[in-house]
Design a protein around this nucleic acid. Structure first.
Length: 259
DNA sequence: ATGGCCACCTATGGTGGA
């Protein structure tokens, strides 16, 4: 089976490309982030016509996640148990479902904005809640993975220039420690192949020709338990999808599994 | 080729993204 994660930066803006990519890539299960619409506006009909069901957690213009599957969709759980909330409200940043032999989460980790911003503290708390929520499945015998936009570059090699991130979020020790805690809970980083250049970046800013210059970051991650990682036959970043007019600023990460 | 921000909102600039 082929499973992917992709921050689409608005389902509405991306729908033509999303439908075309699902077909051309042969993806069976897609964890998507930044739907940027309310659940009742989700294009269920268009996806159904293409052969996919969708489980959606989305409330409006910000955030929003979904699992899109043509291999079934069972035991859907919307939201993150123990979500600390931001500014008094829980945000739609997580959804989980079982798709055939695999259980997956689609997550959109809070950005953090700035290191001294309350959103950064929220980000770290959110990671704590995520670790607690997935610890059981991480130790289980069923293939399990948390896929999504983690908004953290795991190592200095995962940004185009570490000096450019001095004092910024996404590279701080505390954020990387949160990833390490997930690994200690039983999940491993399934690092994809880049299809060009030497680093498997997944995000390039829209501004300043970042994509043509390959000034990217690897922040879209697949954290998987041992039964899942043992089944991986290939993983790559589909950078072609970052090209051209109407692209998201993130490229899909695609994982092939022999299950 | 991959090209100089994008997307949203009961908008006409502010907010969020990273």
């Amino acid at each position: 089976m082929r499973i992917a994660t992709w921050n689409v930066n608005s389902i509405t803006a991306r729908l033509p490309r999303l439908l075309a990519w699902l077909e051309s890539s042969g993806t069976d299960v897609l964890c998507l982030q930044e739907a940027k619409l309310a659940e009742e506006q989700f294009p269920y009909d268009e996806l159904r016509a293409a052969g996919y069901e969708a489980a959606v957690n989305a409330t409006g213009r910000w955030n929003g996640v979904a699992v899109v599957s043509r291999l079934g969709l069972e035991d859907v759980v919307k939201g993150l148990p123990g979500d600390p909330g931001y500014d008094g409200a829980e945000e739609p940043r997580a959804i989980s479902a079982t798709c055939g032999p695999v259980r997956v989460w689609s997550v959109y980790v809070p950005n953090g904005r700035e290191v001294d911003h309350p959103h950064y503290a929220y980000k770290l708390q959110w990671f704590e809640a995520l670790k607690a929520a997935v610890a059981g499945d991480a130790q289980g015998s069923r293939p399990f993975a948390v896929l999504g936009d983690y908004n953290v570059a795991p190592t200095d090699e995962d940004v185009f220039d570490v000096a450019a991130f001095e004092g910024l979020t996404h590279v701080t020790p505390a954020e990387r420690a949160a990833l390490a805690a997930l690994r200690e809970a039983g999940l491993s980083d399934v690092v994809p192949r880049p299809l060009k250049y030497d680093r498997p970046y997944t995000y390039w800013d829209y501004r300043q020709l970042a994509f043509p210059k390959n000034r990217g970051m690897r922040i879209d991650l697949v954290y998987a338990n041992e039964p899942f990682t043992k089944a991986v036959t290939d993983a790559y970043v589909d950078r072609e999808e970052r090209k051209g007019k109407g692209a998201s600023d993130h490229a899909p990460v695609v994982v092939d599994l022999d299950v």
